[in-house]
Every structure is written in structure tokens, then in C-alpha cells.
């Protein structure tokens, strides 16, 4: 990317593998602070692995990642994961009620989540206060994803990582979640990195995009690049492979 911006996360020649399986190869690039960057590319491109590296769920074997200029390896894991929140693709829940799930991040640090705070979080993600006592099993896919995002917001992350959170949602829920992401970015100035298979979504919501294939970043730039990619592999992916 050639744009002028302050990087929230910077990758410097980062590679990651599990035993002999090379998943990411020499990734270099930055995610702009306060912006929404989408990660697109076919399955198995290494997008989820890249997000997990940002959150410290994984560490690279080679290269260095910087979070707001500080080496990721200099962060305490717990501090890093609270600063860089992540909503997982399957929106896993711990069972029980919506409140119990929202309270989880505070509970993990030995604190309690007040009811008013929980209601305000629900409001932020477009759910009514009455949802607090609802059982997780009674939620729709869209509501579940909203609770998952609200739970990640409890830690007040400066950077929010979203792993294909809309992939299994119906059209209405999908629109609601898209609006929610844009709102979080505007309201809190949160940097968002969002994996999506939906190129229209990347064009509509994302400011910037990274296209990944076979563990490499093959093209980056403003989201509009998806309308006229330069790289031949990206062209063929945009024309045929994606939604």
C-alpha cells in the first residue's frame, strides 16, 4: 500500500508453519489505524492464521509483528489479547445466558460486569436489554454473532479482528452485522481487520483490502482494487472464485 497512514499493526517478513506445512510466507505490510481493512482470498490462504498472529494466539517462526510500533513479543499475552480483540468465526459460547457470556472477559480478569454496562453493550450491537437473560441456545445466528462482538468489546480493544463472522448469516442479519461493524469503527475509532469471502462486503464496508493466496499477500490497497485488480491471480479470483 502506498497510502499515507499510521499503522496499527505492521508485519515485517513474517512466516508461519506447523511442522512441514508452510501456512504464511514472508508477509510484509501494514493495517492502517482507525480504518477497516478486509482480508479476502480463497480458503486455505492463511487469513485466519494471520489474524491469530495479531491476537497472539500464534507466534511467527520468522519475522516480527508490531502493534502500534511495539514488538508483539514484548507484550504480555493477556495484555495483548485485551488490546487486540478477536471475534471467532463460529462465535463459540460458554453456554448459559447472554449475560454470562458478556461477563466472561471481566470474569477472566477477576472482575464483574455490571448489568447497566451489559445492557449498554447490547445496545451498542443493536440488541434490546431483554436479551440479557435469554439463553444462548435461543439466539439466531445473527444475534449470536452480535453477542460475540459485544463480548469482544467488553475488553475495549483498540484493534478488532473479525474472522468470517457473516459467512453463515441470512441476508437481513448480514446487513445488520455489516452496519454494526461500520458503527463500531466510527463510534469508537476501532481499527478493524475483517476476513470475508464476500467481495461486495469488502467493497461496501472496507477502506482497505489485502488479497491473500497460498500463504502470501498478492495485492493490497484501497478496497476499490477489487474492481480492477492488477495481479492476474487476483483477477481470476475476483471474476470466478468469490461470491
Amino acid at each position: 500500500m502506498t497510502m499515507d497512514y499510521k499503522p496499527a499493526i505492521h508485519f515485517n517478513d513474517v512466516s508461519y508453519s506447523i511442522e512441514d506445512n508452510q501456512i504464511l510466507r514472508s508477509i510484509t505490510g501494514s493495517f492502517p489505524e482507525g480504518k477497516i481493512t478486509t482480508l479476502v482470498g480463497p480458503s486455505g490462504a492463511g487469513k485466519t492464521t494471520l489474524l491469530k498472529l495479531c491476537n497472539g494466539l500464534l507466534s511467527p517462526q520468522k519475522g516480527e509483528i508490531f502493534i502500534k510500533g511495539k514488538k508483539i513479543s514484548d507484550f504480555e499475552p493477556v495484555e495483548l489479547r485485551r488490546k487486540v480483540g478477536m471475534a471467532l468465526q463460529s462465535a463459540p459460547m460458554i453456554g448459559g445466558t447472554v449475560y454470562e457470556n458478556l461477563a466472561l472477559p471481566m470474569e477472566l480478569s477477576g472482575d464483574k460486569l455490571g448489568k447497566e454496562e451489559a445492557e449498554s453493550l447490547l445496545q451498542d450491537v443493536g440488541l434490546e436489554a431483554k436479551f440479557l437473560e435469554r439463553k444462548i441456545t435461543d439466539l439466531s445466528g445473527g444475534q449470536r454473532q452480535k453477542v460475540s462482538i459485544a463480548r469482544t468489546l467488553v475488553n475495549k480493544p483498540e484493534i478488532l479482528l473479525l474472522d468470517e463472522i457473516t459467512s453463515s448469516l441470512a441476508r437481513t442479519s448480514l446487513k445488520e452485522v455489516e452496519e454494526l461493524i461500520a458503527l463500531i469503527n466510527r463510534k469508537f475509532g476501532t481499527t478493524i481487520i475483517w476476513i470475508t469471502h464476500n467481495l461486495q462486503q469488502a467493497l461496501d464496508i472496507g477502506d482497505y483490502t489485502w488479497v491473500m493466496m497460498d500463504g502470501e499477500v498478492v495485492e493490497t490497497g484501497e478496497s476499490g482494487l477489487l474492481r480492477a485488480p492488477v495481479n492476474d491471480r487476483v483477477k481470476s479470483f475476483v471474476q470466478g472464485g468469490a461470491e
Partner: peptide, 20 residues
């Protein structure tokens, strides 16, 4: 696995992540 990963990603310790 997803529950373990969830708790770690929210800033939990390995003991908290595997407790249940």
C-alpha cells in the same frame, strides 16, 4: 478447541481456558 481458543483470545490464562 473453540472454547479454549475463545477464552485465550479474550485474555484468559491456559488454566482458565482448559478449566471446564
Amino acid at each position: 478447541q473453540d472454547e479454549t481458543e475463545l477464552i485465550l483470545s479474550l485474555g484468559g490464562t491456559p488454566k482458565q481456558a482448559i478449566h471446564r
